[in-house]
């Protein structure tokens, strides 16, 4: 696996993504999602909202890097809040 040039940070990142998918799969099996409409202008399932929040999180980090020199951890904090808001009210 050394050709994949793993680092601890990326390993944790992909571990979190895998864990998220696993939890979503188990959650779906335990209580199937019901499509609904929140503040987002479209009907979404739980998986849709996770996808939207992850994509949004990526853009929050890119925007942060492009427009400010402040620590990237602030962007991560905003991204976590964004994820929770979209999953709950999106």
């Amino acid at each position: 696996m050394s050709w994949m040039a793993w680092t601890p940070v990326t390993a944790i990142f992909f571990g979190c993504v895998a864990l998220m998918l696993l939890i979503m799969g188990l959650w779906q099996a335990a209580s199937p999602t019901i499509p609904r409409r929140g503040f987002l202008p479209l009907v979404t399932t739980r998986g849709d909202r996770l996808f939207i929040s992850l994509l949004g999180a990526a853009y929050i980090h890119l925007g942060w890097l492009a427009f400010t020199d402040a620590s990237i951890y602030y962007a991560s904090g905003i991204a976590v809040v964004w994820l929770l808001v979209v999953m709950r009210w999106g």
Partner: peptide, 8 residues
Amino acid sequence: MTVVNYSV
């Protein structure tokens, strides 16, 4: 995943 690893 490899590209993500390379990018940092």
